[in-house]
Nucleic acid binder design. Structure first.
Lengths: 221, 221
DNA sequence: CCTACCGATCGGTAGG
DNA sequence: CCTACCGATCGGTAGG
């Protein structure tokens, strides 16, 4: 199965002059701080004043980079997606397709969660929980990121079936749900308990997970 | 908690018990609104002014009931726990111990999530996600509620082993983790997609879940 | 990218 | 339980 690499979302204009280059690096510095604040305290707690203080510039100066709080929130999600792609998705696709990629996906995700443990763990789990009952562009951007995470996992599982690592009649959608629920629950429980044994438990769950079958009784239940 | 007596009015004061009964019903009304706000938008978005407007009283009047925002947040969690206990835990214990209680637990939890779907779903998942990186009494209260939820599930599983519904060498702690992760992930995915099929998938996962064994290779991995 | 400012809202207090 | 108020902070704007 063909997998298109996820598109880049953060804008990186070619530095045509020194001022543009400086603007881009300032923007990067702002978004690095924005990700930490948003992941730790939420996208709504990401205030322009607090962010300006943290990067050492004026509120109005920072505001000019984004034009609205909503745009800042969306730019922050885009930036978090770049991090997720480079720390989880790209390392996973470096493994052989099939079962190795499935195991790699989980390992890279857990490393990502631990690496950012002090900043709220998985950015997208936190953002989903915060915005799941709202409407608007920020919620839509959060939703899209979860949909893309699911689609990536679907592809990994399809490849595992194609490679003969999972039975031909594996219910990929069901198994994808089970793994998404497992890693999401693992992230939340780790954030609360901060006990790495939780990752060991999750690995064990994946290893013992029976591949769900298509057109089984369960589907008609 | 110390409560300052309200000032006398010009008319004859009502009997003490009636006044206290009124205070208690006002408090209930406040906490009903507080739960909805906190579950939908977060415990931090639960502002005293907004809550006062919603229940139709002054900020200062409402504030007097709690003394601080932190106390209001904790009272709101306590109130949410009462709801969880009466809607999930108590109905579960009405089923026969063992496997029936395990299935009942999941069903009552999913009904609880659906009943409160417009208010953020599971109060405790949302609160955990919001407060997992903080310190202080509110975080501690949230942590306690998750610990109590886990302990309840542990007990249900122990009973299932004792009743012979699960093998004697079942690793209860592992299985408890797997079910907590499953229901937590289910809640989060349902909040995002609002698709009840997700509950069907979770039921199927529980039915097919192999009971993890104690002192298996996984534990030493 | 800055200073200076706007109206709204925050948690909380004084005083009754 | 109220009115009236406090300093701080919010998102955002004017004008340079």
């Amino acid at each position: 199965m063909k997998r298109t690499p996820p598109a880049k979302t953060s804008k990186a204009p070619p530095p045509t002059d020194r001022r543009r280059a400086h603007g881009a690096s300032t923007r990067r510095e702002i978004l690095d701080a924005a990700r930490r604040i948003a992941a730790a305290d939420g996208l709504e707690a990401l205030s322009i004043g607090r962010l300006a203080t943290e990067v050492g510039m004026s509120k109005a100066g920072l505001f000019a980079h984004f034009g609205s709080k909503e745009s800042l929130q969306i730019a922050t999600i885009d930036s978090a997606w770049d991090v997720y792609r480079s720390e989880v998705l790209e390392p996973t696709t470096a493994s052989p397709p099939g079962a190795p990629q499935l195991r790699a996906y989980m390992e890279h995700y857990f490393e990502y969660v631990q690496r950012h443990a002090m900043d709220g763990g998985c950015f997208f789990t936190a953002a989903s929980s915060e915005f799941d009952d709202r409407t608007g562009p920020v919620r839509d951007r959060v939703f899209k990121s979860t949909a893309e995470r699911s689609a990536f996992l679907d592809n990994v599982l399809h490849d595992a079936v194609a490679a003969g690592h999972l039975p031909k009649n594996t219910d990929v959608a069901q198994m994808s749900f089970e793994i998404m629920a497992l890693v999401t629950g693992t992230n939340l429980l780790f954030q609360l308990y901060k006990d790495p044994q939780i990752f060991q438990r999750a690995r064990r769950t994946l290893r013992a997970m029976p591949p769900p079958k298509r057109s089984s009784k369960g589907a008609a239940d």
